[in-house]
Design a protein around this nucleic acid. Sequence first.
DNA 1: AATTGTGAATTCCTTCACAGCC
DNA 2: GGCTGTGAAGGAATTCACAATT
Lengths: 233, 233
Amino acid sequence: MKTEKVSELTTNRLSVYLRCLNELAVSGTETISSQALADQFNLNSAQIRKDLAYFGEFGVRGVGYYVEDLRRHLMNILGLTEKRKVVIVGLGNLGLALANYQGFNQDSFEVVGLFDDDPAKIGVKTRIGVTIQSTKHLSEAIRRDKVEIVILAVPAIAAERVLEEVTEAGVRAVLNFAPVHLNPRPGVKVKTVDLTISLESLSYFLANPGTDAVSVDYRDFLGREAGANGAAR
Amino acid sequence: MKTEKVSELTTNRLSVYLRCLNELAVSGTETISSQALADQFNLNSAQIRKDLAYFGEFGVRGVGYYVEDLRRHLMNILGLTEKRKVVIVGLGNLGLALANYQGFNQDSFEVVGLFDDDPAKIGVKTRIGVTIQSTKHLSEAIRRDKVEIVILAVPAIAAERVLEEVTEAGVRAVLNFAPVHLNPRPGVKVKTVDLTISLESLSYFLANPGTDAVSVDYRDFLGREAGANGAAR
DNA sequence: AATTGTGAATTCCTTCACAGCC
DNA sequence: GGCTGTGAAGGAATTCACAATT
């Protein structure tokens, strides 16, 4: 167990391992080797061992990793044992889809509020039974309900402003779907999902056949950014 | 201008630069320096110059880059001067949202078909005026309409099978929203958007305050994968 | 004077290879 | 024998720093 900083590439892979372990647990598999796990994702087994070694010695030499044990460790590391409250701001197509999406781990994330500034939408109840409120009440609700994560599904033009507002209200983690670069304050983490970049990346590939090296499906997007610790640059 | 392979990190940044140049063009700015561009994204100016240098010498020393000129070059490099046909498979919450999403560059991408295997959905017309068809007709439509990009918004369990089918029908680029690792055949590129990983990454950050180094908003997900050139490992 | 384009230096990430343990 | 954990090697991406150019 080290105290070095852990790269986000590593923690993202932990999520992938966890998903796989969940399936293995369901199927009743007791142990798995780093090699067997690596085969599932075209990864190198040493990488998996290194990723895990940042957090402890979870394996047993000659045996591999106990599925249930490693699963619990990863849940802990990723902070998935607590249920985190989430609000969605912007209930357009995407925001509504996310509000009704069942794919999130329901044990770890709970959508407790939906906010939009379109009067026509306020009061509408979504399938999961949450009512859309005016953004007027956003800050208040975040403070009251101890919301930890905000999903931004607003137009690009509004994203910066809402980020500012929810930061002010104490939110430290934002999942941003607006196609815009956001500069969070120190201590705040923004993760952007940019569909335009994804599509254009496919377009580049189609336009430049063969140019492509080994594709890096899970390692995406532009370089270093200002970030959580504020140490931009 | 070199002939080395260009990393996807580079091409993703080109998308970001292009978006910025579009805004600059609208605002009437004539030239921009790599430094000024870099400031917008907390990037290093040398990185921008290097990224561009893979494709040519677009700048003018002492001046910078002509906005319109560079914009056109980037559009060409990214293959955005042709309109590419897209179909969406899986019209659940997310698929429907994407079908109605106006955010894609309408000049470069056109949604020409929607496919689902739920009989209740077949025949439904979306807001953008495209009717949902049975997946029975998927391969046929791809071949007939020369579809180049498939957006996969099906459940994880079905993703592999649909990928196989559309690959067989000639599609070489897939944007995958199913939370599952896909192994495309050589020559096929899959780009996965995994909301679970994104959320869990935020959860990790919340659970490990301070552990976080400079956040890397645009550089996401797990390491190397089998890919377009088939040179997995 | 300003800014590009790029070799060299640096930093970061991945893979190798093997000692150590079960 | 099989598999982990890890130091060392290798490779990739970023940043520095400066010569070249307008």
